[in-house]
């Protein structure tokens, strides 16, 4: 297998994180560019082993100060608290430049009547709130469900991507390499949750990144940051005393479509059976 993690890589990584600590954020773009050009690819024997070497041994690849191997992110949504205000949807759109018509996160409204009839809506993903005039006969339960990419551990989207453009990062975030994606849309078909779309502007697959640019700087995803009711919680299972992993470990949490065994890392508190 040509692309296995080899021993030399592991050694490099140790040095990498140390050297990287000194790199300030402002320098880091320049550093990346420098490091990249410095890193030479040596092809050893028949297509088998890659060894990175160069002027700056152990230079940070791909970024300074942050080691993806030291984190493992988890996310919890507490449905019982969601007020359906759409702050997260608006925040996500603004933070990530999400194209019109598509959503990286959206809010669904469920209304269930005594007879068991379920009606669901999500006008503009909840971006402009919900219409109060839509009700039904004798609604016995109603609630909002924020949806987004589940960052599945066994994600069908990653499995099916033909070119390795969709991948799960070492810290557990499912991402799309926008420079390699061929825009086939296979992953969009593969995601059981409707979390992906082909971006009409860039023509590549796009989806929630858990605001990777924020979390790698120690910030929280924009949706979590902007939620006024603490519905959305973001945590790191590798951190000490992490509130979110504690919830997952001790509370009665649920995931969407568990029968598909995608092993989501997004858990729900108070999920009801009507939600798909």
């Amino acid at each position: 297998m040509p692309y296995m993690k080899g021993e030399p890589m592991n050694d490099n990584k140790e040095m990498k994180s140390d050297a990287a600590l000194e790199v300030s954020r402002r320098d880091f773009l320049g550093t990346i560019a420098g490091a990249l050009s410095a890193v030479a690819l040596v092809i050893v024997a028949d297509d088998a082993v890659y060894i990175a070497s160069g002027a700056e041994p152990g230079a940070p690849l791909p970024a300074g100060g942050y080691d993806p191997d030291k984190h493992s992110y988890v996310y919890v949504i507490d449905i019982t608290k969601c007020i359906g205000c759409g702050s997260c949807v608006r925040a996500c759109k603004a933070e990530n430049n999400v194209p019109d018509l598509f959503f990286r996160t959206w809010i669904e409204r469920y209304m269930v009547s005594r007879s068991g009839e379920v009606s669901v809506d999500s006008p503009k993903g909840g971006y402009d709130g919900f219409d109060p005039s839509i009700t039904g006969d004798e609604i016995t339960k109603a609630f909002f469900v924020p949806k987004m990419c589940n960052h599945c551990s066994h994600s069908p989207c990653v499995q099916l991507c033909p070119v390795g453009a969709s991948y799960r990062s070492p810290d557990g975030v499912v991402l799309v390499d926008e420079k390699r994606c061929i825009g086939c849309g296979y992953c969009v078909q593969a995601c059981p949750y409707g979390s992906r779309f082909l971006n009409p502007e860039t023509k590549v697959a796009s989806k929630c990144t858990w605001c990777y640019h924020r979390i790698t700087k120690g910030m929280r995803p924009a949706c979590v940051e902007m939620c006024p009711r603490g519905v959305r919680k973001f945590g790191d299972a590798k951190a000490l005393h992490d509130e979110v992993s504690e919830i997952i470990a001790t509370k009665q949490v649920h995931v969407l479509k568990p029968e598909l065994l995608t092993e989501p890392n997004l858990h729900y508190l108070g999920l009801s059976m009507e939600v798909r």
Partner: peptide
Amino acid sequence: EQGFYRYDSLGDYM
């Protein structure tokens, strides 16, 4: 480097 993807892509996101 870390799996079947371009590791530098993480940097693009960061």
